[in-house]
Amino acid sequence: MRNLAITLWLFAAAAFAQQGNLDVDSPAITQLKSSMAERHRALEPYYNSGVVGLARDGTVALRDPATVPLAQRQAVSKLVATENEDRAALYREITRINGNPAWETDIRATFAQRWIDRAPAGWWVQSATGAWQKK
């Protein structure tokens, strides 16, 4: 399923590149892609079980951690925080290499929507109204 993460990334990146003449390629972004793909293996069971969902702001969110044993909740919470740090770094890096920090909101929105569009059936995603729904 590492391939799935990369595929999701490629769709998101391609979609974003189509928005205009934007550079979505840098060594740091390559590193981030690799890091996120690696982490995807740990996150995937939580996507499948609905513990973690894809939020509309381009982050992942602890949607329903109640099914996770207490002793593991810290670890899942840390996993989500680390993934969101990478995602935030990704959005910032794209704005940085394109020299326009003001684009970050649009970049987040574009990536968020593409990730949600391409999420497999059974994953939980957040709608524009903020409600969670199972694909």
Partner: peptide
């Protein structure tokens, strides 16, 4: 117990 958001729980 388990709060709805899972952030507060005991066992």
């Amino acid at each position: 117990f388990n709060s709805p958001d899972g952030n507060h729980a005991g066992d």
